[in-house]
Amino acid sequence: MAHATDDHAAHGHHIIPIPTLLKVFGALVALTAITVGLSAFDFGMFEIPVALGLASAKATLVVMIFMALKYDNPVNMLTFSVGVLFVAVFLIFTLLDTAFRGDMDNVDRLTIEERERLNEQLQESDVDAEDLQVAPSDMQ
């Protein structure tokens, strides 16, 4: 810990040069402009993926360079990734419900047993040959 320089080497403190910071800032502004520009067009179902993709690109730049995660201890990267992963889990599993809510509505209201009983009843009852003609080919 004698010299500042040693310190930096030992601590892995990375000084990010100003040109890099400015370039990243330029990219962020450009991506913002693209986001706004693209929002004028209708991408239909791709709208959200496009918007989120651009936002993620911006966020990645901020996290990697401004927050220096790229030069940082890997455990911090791991921490951050786990956080993001669980946001995804939260989102996906909740949508798994809400996007398919009511998917049981078209299920048969009769139980299997009742259905069988009904079939039996139908079988027992006399049916005319005419009643059985349902498809065009039956009519011939």
Partner: peptide, 22 residues
């Protein structure tokens, strides 16, 4: 443990597919 919370909601009216997955 983060992937199973829906087992508390089997009869809540959540979608059947998520009940099955949970």
């Amino acid at each position: 443990g983060f992937l199973v919370w829906g087992h508390h909601m089997f009869v809540s009216g959540q979608s059947a597919i998520s009940s099955i997955v949970f």
